[in-house]
Design a protein around this nucleic acid. Sequence first.
DNA 1: ACAGCATACCGGTATATACAACATCGGTAT
DNA 2: ATACCGATGTTGTATATACCGGTATGCTGT
Lengths: 234, 234
Amino acid sequence: MKLPKYRLISNEIKKKISASLWKAGSQIPSETELANHFSASRMTARKAVDELVNSGVLERVASVGTFVKEPAAQSSLLEIRNIADEIRSRGHVHKMTVLSKLMLIPNDAIAFTLSLNSRTVYKIIIVHWENDQPIQLEERYVNAERVPLFLQQDFSKITASEYLNSIAPVTEAEITVEAVMPTKILKHNLQVDDGVPCLKVTRITHSHGQPICYAVLYHPANRFKLTSHLNIVN
Amino acid sequence: MKLPKYRLISNEIKKKISASLWKAGSQIPSETELANHFSASRMTARKAVDELVNSGVLERVASVGTFVKEPAAQSSLLEIRNIADEIRSRGHVHKMTVLSKLMLIPNDAIAFTLSLNSRTVYKIIIVHWENDQPIQLEERYVNAERVPLFLQQDFSKITASEYLNSIAPVTEAEITVEAVMPTKILKHNLQVDDGVPCLKVTRITHSHGQPICYAVLYHPANRFKLTSHLNIVN
DNA sequence: ACAGCATACCGGTATATACAACATCGGTAT
DNA sequence: ATACCGATGTTGTATATACCGGTATGCTGT
């Protein structure tokens, strides 16, 4: 599997950027300089840059130069947000409360979704707090065969999704978003007022084809929005 | 505003395709033939094809030829859903009602979001129906400079997003999802019962860095879910 | 009839070259 | 000091050319 020259060049550029030798916002060498450095023609160097511009890593300014794009765009391709990171990145305090944690026999729907053979599944219910206000209630069913030690984790130190991702990194996900009125229990746990709806996010995650987790996340509508930035490549 | 030659070529190709002269799955002329036909070099013709390959309109097969891509596969990775297609793919009847259609002076927020210099923006409010039930109310602000003929379109034949995408294909999008209780007007237009929340999807779309459209979509929660399948590459 | 081969064709890569359009910077004349 | 001009550097576009490696096709010899 031989890579074409322009791809070797674009890989080198990517390396420089991910090693922070070329930092966000800074100007990279001109196409002519790149061509000389890699002993290629300008058109080939340009093609390498083309690739990175299309994938959102670089940005061209006509007549001026080519620049490393600010990191906002770089992670752009659809990430699964970690609620704890998000809260902390807003400079707020994140806390978790485990409401329940048990092993049970899955009903048919759960067993089917997680393709379970065994008769056990882990279920955990957690409330996430942002500055002493509940912001998310998650109800999570985890593939016990694939992540056997799940229940033994200390979820005051690591979030469920962090742990799952370390054991079985998410490679595919199916996400459904709905608006619902909270049940009584939900209203109580999320401390929502009368008449305030909730966002319900259902997330089925897979790792290399294997289903790992079925999670339902509830967020009070008056304190939570779901946003994502997409770059359409194809 | 003079278009480069390769873009003229790619536009001609797009025309042929959208006029169904070149049908899905069929082979288009070779790069050499295109070059001759447009009196351009092969490299220029190739660049035109490159664009359409990157935007998912065409598909190359090495040593064989270039083909018009089948419309279905084009959007598998994070697509901006077209409500009309979706409804039809469920085998249901789709209908649109234009509630209002006007040109107005944007407020500061809209002008900022769309980076408008001029003092006009197009606004249109449309209700989408699925089998005689309203399923989406869209309130859409369109960049009048970039899409000057927007208001003159016949939106009983083509959806707003279809038309916009044909003029300025979406390359970036910022999407926010919220749960809200409907206003009185919203309740009336979407025919939702008391106590039923709505999904509110706010969508800002860009085409090659230029903001094109600011859209707010409301869906009755009891008749609508938003789902997406993600492949995590990194 | 069939296997194997030669050939034409096609996209993929790579180079060298040229000019255009625009920005930036420095120097010069007013 | 300011306005103008020009040199220079950079990306953007366009062309001509060459070769590679693959596919498809048709021909040829058996």
